[in-house]
Simulated assay, not measured.
Amino acid sequence: MSAIRPFHLAIPVHNLEECRSFYRDVLGCIEGRSSDHWVDFDFYGHQLVIHYKEKSAADLHTNAVDGKAVPVPHFGVVLTMEDFESLSKALQERGIEFIIEPYIRFKGEAGEQATMFFLDPAGNALEFKAFKNIEQLFAVD
């Protein structure tokens, strides 16, 4: 592919107003169109839509990555290291409970990156990361 283009992601939430506040006020996403059942957000240049869905009893599944239990499924964005540090500090100051606290993964290896995982109020897992060298985003050993 020759160009990076924004993606569209729709996720289920059982608490539309609480999640609307989380994405807008905690993560700083700009709100777009909405209805009684969904809300669009500018999620770091990508379109994120939260859709109301009744709560289910699905368990959080994890896979081991770098010795950590990474939640599956999850979504997020790749930030600059400066933006990652700023966001992680702001989230810590707001008392966000992390699934995986901000740390450096694959230290000294191809793809070295800062990463953190946390849940939105509906239990959707988010990962934010930043690469030491963005050229290694898709690097293989």
Score class of each variant (00 low, 15 high):
Ile11Glu: 05
Ile11Gln: 03
Pro12Ser: 02
Pro12Thr: 01
Pro12Gln: 00
Pro12Ile: 01
His14Val: 01
Asn15Pro: 02
Leu16Gly: 04
Glu17Trp: 01
Cys19Gly: 01
Ser21His: 12
Ser21Trp: 13
Tyr23Pro: 00
Arg24Leu: 05
Asp25Phe: 05
Asp25Met: 08
Asp25Lys: 07
Asp25Ser: 12
Leu27Asp: 05
Leu27Gln: 07
Gly28Asn: 07
Gly28Val: 09
Gly28Asp: 05
Ile30Tyr: 02
Ile30Arg: 11
Ile30Met: 07
Ile30His: 07
Glu31Val: 14
Arg33Ser: 12
Arg33Glu: 10
Ser34Pro: 00
Ser35Phe: 04
Ser35Arg: 03
Ser35Val: 06
Asp36Val: 06
His37Glu: 12
Val39Phe: 04
Val39Arg: 00
Asp42Glu: 12
Asp42Trp: 08
Asp42Val: 08
Phe43Tyr: 14
Tyr44Ala: 11
Gly45Cys: 08
Gly45Val: 10
Gly45Ala: 08
His46Leu: 08
Gln47Cys: 12
Leu48Arg: 07
Val49Lys: 09
Val49Pro: 00
His51Gly: 02
His51Pro: 00
Tyr52Glu: 12
Lys55Ser: 11
Ala57Asp: 15
Ala58Val: 11
Asp59Tyr: 01
Leu60Lys: 12
Leu60Ser: 12
Leu60Pro: 00
Thr62Lys: 02
Thr62His: 06
Thr62Arg: 01
Ala64Asp: 06
Asp66Gly: 02
Lys68Arg: 12
Pro71Ser: 12
Val72Glu: 13
Val72Ala: 08
Pro73Gln: 13
His74Ser: 14
Phe75Ala: 11
Phe75Leu: 14
Gly76Pro: 09
Val77Cys: 10
Val77Ser: 08
Val78Trp: 00
Thr80Val: 02
Met81Pro: 02
Asp83Gln: 10
Glu85Tyr: 03
Ser86Met: 08
Ser86His: 08
Leu87Trp: 04
Ser88Ile: 03
Ser88Phe: 00
Lys89Leu: 14
Ala90Gly: 04
Gln92Asp: 15
Gln92Lys: 15
Glu93Thr: 14
Ile96Cys: 05
Glu97Thr: 12
Phe98Lys: 03
Glu101Asp: 14
Glu101His: 10
Glu101Ala: 15
Pro102Trp: 10
Tyr103Val: 08
Ile104Pro: 00
Ile104Cys: 06
Arg105Phe: 08
Arg105Met: 14
Phe106Cys: 06
Lys107Phe: 02
Gly108Lys: 02
Gly108Thr: 02
Glu109Ser: 09
Ala110Asp: 11
Gln113Gly: 01
Ala114Trp: 12
Thr115Ala: 15
Met116Ile: 05
Phe118Glu: 03
Phe118Arg: 01
Phe118Tyr: 04
Leu119Pro: 01
Asp120Glu: 09
Asp120Thr: 09
Pro121His: 09
Gly123Trp: 07
Asn124Trp: 14
Asn124Tyr: 13
Asn124Ala: 13
Asn124Gly: 13
Ala125Thr: 11
Leu126Gln: 12
Glu127Ser: 15
Glu127Met: 15
Lys129Trp: 03
Lys132Met: 04
Lys132Ala: 09
Asn133Leu: 07
